[in-house]
Design a protein around this nucleic acid. Structure first.
Lengths: 132, 132
DNA sequence: CCGCTGCATCGGCGACTGTCAATATAGATG
DNA sequence: CATCTATATTGACAGTCGCCGATGCAGCGG
């Protein structure tokens, strides 16, 4: 969070599973930013906690409890998730509520789909035994 | 690659979309390691390049060309992907071939599935207009 | 108007990451 | 064995990340 301030809300990068055709350099950069936001245990738990709460939203005060980190750190992680376009928030009086943006999750998840060709490249292409 | 040497090949962490119930601390840690391996443009392109080649595998010599980084850097990224359980490799004579492990990709992708409840928590829970 | 509470921002610190040049290793070939 | 090619490892450096304490700011209640 020192130089990479730009909102990572790029268009969409792409949609087809990346196992179909090589990613462009630009798409890879945009998508990597999305995965980077997911690449932290606290953020992952925050995301799942917000999504699984009734109503699909959570007050920050509900999110600081379950974690061993300080409130500024939670606020920081929420900011990262928000700048990655994975969540959004709104102030309601004293409290601020966060919710997940499912489309962003879906977009990243769809990219990881290896397709129905599970048997072809299952473990090893044409190899005989196991490897390293 | 200085202290985090342990192979991130944890069991499986979990399977259900993380939007259903809060992730445990251990699951979040394991899964974050997986996403961390995806959180780099070069690794993302490597992965998609390997997967999209005929036969689903690629020689390292096929992978160093399309990138602006040095050969040791490619080798480093391949190692990260391999230690994250996303790819595997085998030496065949002079060359080393890599291929994607689709189950690992599927596991991470399935986690991001926000479920069929696309309408319920589509954009905002019960809000009126847009926000920040 | 004043203090209180909920949340965000700032500044700094230690740890980790991506990168390269240099070097090491493995297999092929002469 | 000498040597060449393909790939991995090492060591170093700059940049980034996650974390905290301190501080700022916005609503609410007296």
């Amino acid at each position: 969070m020192s130089k990479n301030e730009l909102p990572v809300l790029q268009p969409a990068a792409c949609c087809a599973p990346m196992t179909r055709e090589p990613l462009s350099e630009a798409d890879a950069k945009s998508l990597a930013a999305g995965f980077k936001a997911l690449a932290d245990p606290v953020r992952l738990r925050l995301l799942s906690l917000i999504a699984s709460l009734a109503g699909g939203e959570a007050c920050v005060c509900d999110l600081t409890g379950p974690f061993d980190v300080s409130q500024p750190t939670i606020s920081h992680h929420l900011r990262v998730l928000r700048e990655a376009g994975l969540i959004d928030c709104e102030r309601r009086g004293t409290w601020v509520y966060y919710w997940v943006l499912p489309d962003a999750l879906r977009r990243l998840g769809a990219l990881l789909d290896p397709g129905p060709d599970a048997a072809v490249t299952a473990t090893a292409p044409t190899r005989i035994g196991a490897t390293a």
